[in-house]
Simulated scan of single mutants.
Amino acid sequence: MSNVETVITVAVVLAVIAMGIFLIHQLNAQHDARIASFHYGEAIQGLGRRRRPRRRRPATGPPGPPEAGTHGDQHDGGRG
């Protein structure tokens, strides 16, 4: 290859790299704009999980200290 062909090849490679950098920059800006406009708290109708009605828990016993032999006495100190 002659010097002229080498210079042209290097110029073409640098131009392709510059176009790639510009394209990646534009795609990142578009992606950032899309993320900024998306509201995570709002649900899109027809997508996502369906909400089930909440079940009410049955009332527990009267408030007060736990009875003997209940959860408070079952602590094993964290050993398996």
Rank of each mutant, 00 (worst) to 15 (best):
H25L: 13
G46W: 01
V7C: 07
A59C: 06
R57K: 14
P62E: 06
L23R: 13
Y40C: 04
R52H: 11
R34W: 12
R49W: 05
D32F: 04
P63Y: 00
H25I: 08
G64V: 00
P62N: 04
M19R: 13
R55T: 04
F22I: 11
V10G: 06
R56F: 10
R52N: 14
R56E: 13
G48V: 02
E42F: 07
L47W: 08
Q45E: 13
V12Q: 14
I8C: 06
H75R: 15
T60N: 07
Q74W: 11
F22C: 09
Q30E: 14
H39S: 14
F22H: 10
T6A: 15
Q26E: 09
A33Y: 05
Q74P: 00
P65C: 02
V7A: 15
E42H: 06
R54A: 12
G20M: 08
P65A: 03
P53L: 10
A11M: 07
G20I: 08
L14S: 13
G64E: 03
A59F: 00
D76S: 13
S37Y: 07
D32I: 05
I24S: 14
H31L: 15
R50H: 12
A15Q: 10
R52Q: 13
L14E: 11
T9L: 12
G48C: 04
R55S: 06
G61K: 00
A29Q: 11
I8D: 09
Q45H: 08
G64M: 03
I35G: 01
V13I: 14
A15R: 06
A11T: 12
A36N: 12
I44Q: 07
S37V: 07
N28L: 14
S37H: 09
G72V: 10
Y40N: 07
N28Y: 09
E42T: 12
G69K: 00
P66S: 02
V12Y: 07
Q26D: 11
V10C: 06
V7D: 10
N28Q: 15
R51I: 09
L27C: 04
L14A: 15
G64D: 00
A11K: 05
T6I: 12
Y40I: 13
G64P: 00
V12E: 14
A15D: 08
D73C: 01
Y40G: 05
A68K: 06
V16K: 08
T60E: 08
T70W: 05
G48R: 01
I35D: 07
G41H: 01
H71P: 00
G77T: 03
Q26A: 10
R55P: 00
G48W: 00
A15C: 14
A29G: 10
V12I: 15
R49N: 07
E42I: 14
I35W: 04
I17V: 15
I17L: 13
G20S: 14
D73N: 06
M19S: 14
A43E: 09
Q45D: 09
Q26C: 06
H31S: 15
V12M: 13
R54E: 10
A33M: 08
V13N: 12
A59R: 00
P63A: 02
P62Q: 05
M19N: 11
I44N: 05
I35V: 15
H75Y: 15
R56M: 10
D73F: 04
P53I: 05
I35N: 07
A11G: 11
G46F: 01
G61C: 01
P65S: 03
